Amino acid sequence: MSTANTGENIVVDTIELGDVRITRVVEWHSPIAPAAVVFPSSTEQMWRSNQDWLAPHFWDPETTFFKAYTQTWVLRSGGRTILVDTGVGNDKERPYMRVWSHLDTDFLSRLAAAGVEPEDVDIVVNTHVHADHVGWNTRLVDREWVPTFPSAKYLIARADFEFWNPVNGYPKRGSLGGISGALGNQNMFLQFMEPECEACLSEDEPAAARQRRRFLERAADTNALVLPAHLPGPGGALVRREGSAFAIEHWAPFSPVA
């Protein structure tokens, strides 16, 4: 992986796609849980047979813990600055995931190292409304929650907005104590190969599997670069069909910041 290092010792990873610059800003990373806990329908054989690409970036074969990032993708094109997802956030109560509760990270410094101040952001896209994708939408200032990106327009899928809107009495269910979203399932790790392998995070598991398969089919057929929300590792993935499943063709590496 080719990276750049700022004067603050913060690494900035970028990929150029035409006239769009995509920068990864990592908020938090750690081994997070045994794979079988989060992917209860997976088998040890699934993980072992994919060990050649899962280890060491995504999965530790000795502990069986998988590794995850919470991160933001910064898109810059045509003079606009767009953030895709905003991580967990500082000072937030996360009782269902103790490692995320009351974080105190240097995320805003990392964002600044990527050349973005909060006032610069034009649009925030929340792909779904899990707590680890919307956390920096707000920050605590003088004991009050205020918008982190005061000039931005925030875009949220209507289905997720209506599902989580307190006036609609959303159901507090799902493993991890309510972290599950309505339609916001994403590809993680083994699901590149096995899109029907369900994580414990979906309200509608059959619909989530269908959505993942449609997404991977489109990515494979159009040669689209896949930049998943939680994956660490060397860059973006290009996928190919392999029978009824999929495989990673190769990784598009990050490049140094100019």
Rank of each mutant, 00 (worst) to 15 (best):
M1G: 02
M1Y: 01
T3P: 00
N5R: 15
V12G: 00
D13K: 14
I15F: 07
E16C: 09
E16V: 15
G18I: 09
V20E: 03
R21L: 15
R21N: 07
I22N: 02
W28I: 06
P31D: 07
A35H: 14
V37D: 04
V38L: 09
F39K: 03
S41C: 07
T43Q: 07
T43N: 07
M46V: 01
S49A: 13
L54P: 00
H57P: 01
F58K: 05
T63K: 08
T63D: 00
F66A: 03
T72C: 14
W73C: 02
L75C: 07
T81W: 02
I82N: 01
V84R: 11
V84W: 11
V84K: 11
G87C: 09
V88K: 03
G89W: 03
D91S: 08
K92W: 03
E93F: 04
P95Q: 11
P95E: 06
M97W: 04
W100V: 01
L103R: 13
L103Q: 13
D104S: 13
D106C: 05
S109M: 13
R110S: 06
A113S: 15
A114Y: 05
G115E: 02
V116W: 05
V116G: 07
E119I: 11
D120K: 12
H128T: 15
V129A: 13
H133M: 15
V134F: 03
G135C: 05
W136R: 06
W136A: 04
D142S: 14
E144G: 01
E144I: 06
W145L: 14
K153I: 15
L155G: 03
L155E: 11
L155S: 05
A157P: 03
R158P: 01
R158I: 09
E162P: 00
E162I: 07
W164E: 07
N165T: 12
P166E: 10
N168R: 14
N168C: 04
Y170K: 12
Y170M: 13
Y170C: 09
P171A: 11
P171M: 12
P171F: 07
R173H: 01
G174L: 06
I179M: 11
I179D: 00
G181M: 10
G181N: 06
G184H: 12
N187F: 03
M188F: 11
F189W: 04
Q191T: 12
P195Y: 05
P195D: 03
E196D: 08
C200D: 04
L201K: 05
S202H: 07
E203L: 14
D204S: 14
E205V: 15
P206Y: 05
Q211Y: 08
Q211P: 00
E217N: 14
A220T: 10
A220W: 04
D221C: 02
D221K: 14
N223L: 10
A224Y: 00
L227V: 14
P228F: 02
L231M: 14
L231K: 01
L231N: 10
G233L: 10
G235A: 13
G236T: 11
G236Y: 05
A237E: 10
R240T: 13
G243D: 01
A245N: 15
E249V: 04
P256D: 03
P256C: 09
